[in-house]
Design a protein around this nucleic acid. Structure first.
Length: 197
DNA sequence: AGCGGGATTTTCT
DNA sequence: GAAAATCCCGCTT
């Protein structure tokens, strides 16, 4: 036993604002077109049903029903007429909570190159995945993955290195008009892929 | 470096 | 009918 591995279901047990920082450092493994892309999560934001900025705030709807389902599933929403963003559903079934994945870092060159090819107009460098809609485009995540179980192919969430607390920055959220002051955005200190530093 | 606007469609009022 | 958990481009300091 070289390292103690955490099970996904254990990691997702608790309050959403406690789980959001724990997802930093976890790996997303996306299988697409015969390739396996691996990225590390470097920035997250917490949302739950007590929060005026959350899609689950006004109760369950057709769009948000995945947020009210069991933990460990993917909630994908479409916004601004052109963008997808993805969340990891947490919390007990019946409670609407999820963690928005805001930025990821490719783990190897194969992942980096494929992700860059998935982004239009020669976007390169950290720009390929330093935002919630950017990473969805880079990893080909759209509404067909809404409600997907993250323990299965073609998209898995794998607990990995726990990021030490001293390397995690705790900040206000970005891009929302309500409840802006809730310090529910988390990112890895100094990581180049973090958005809007 | 920073601000402002346009793209474009789903979702809810 | 309006707003939206965004991104990108162009213009101004």
């Amino acid at each position: 036993m070289a390292s103690k591995k955490i099970a996904l279901c254990d990691l997702l047990h608790g309050a959403v604002n406690e789980i959001a920082p724990l997802l930093l450092g976890c790996v997303l493994e996306r299988e697409i077109n015969g390739e396996t892309l691996r990225v590390r999560i470097v920035e997250t934001e917490a949302y739950d049903q007590t929060d005026a900025a959350s899609h689950s705030y006004k109760g369950q709807t057709e769009r948000t029903k995945v947020m009210f389902g069991p933990a460990g599933y993917l909630y994908v929403y479409f916004t601004y007429g052109m963008h997808y963003c993805c969340n990891v559903v947490v919390g007990p079934e019946g409670y609407g909570a999820a963690v928005l994945i805001r930025a990821v870092e490719p783990i190897d060159d194969i992942s980096f190159n494929s992700m860059q090819n998935n982004r239009p107009n020669g976007v390169s460098g950290v720009q390929i995945a330093n935002g919630p809609a950017k990473l969805c485009q880079a990893l080909c995540i759209d509404k067909t993955l809404n409600g997907h179980n993250l323990q299965n192919a073609p998209l898995r969430l794998l607990p990995d290195e726990l990021v030490p607390l001293k390397n995690i920055v705790h900040a206000k959220r970005i891009g929302i008009s309500k409840a802006k002051d809730m310090p529910w955005r988390f990112y890895i200190k100094g990581n180049p892929y973090v958005s809007n530093v």
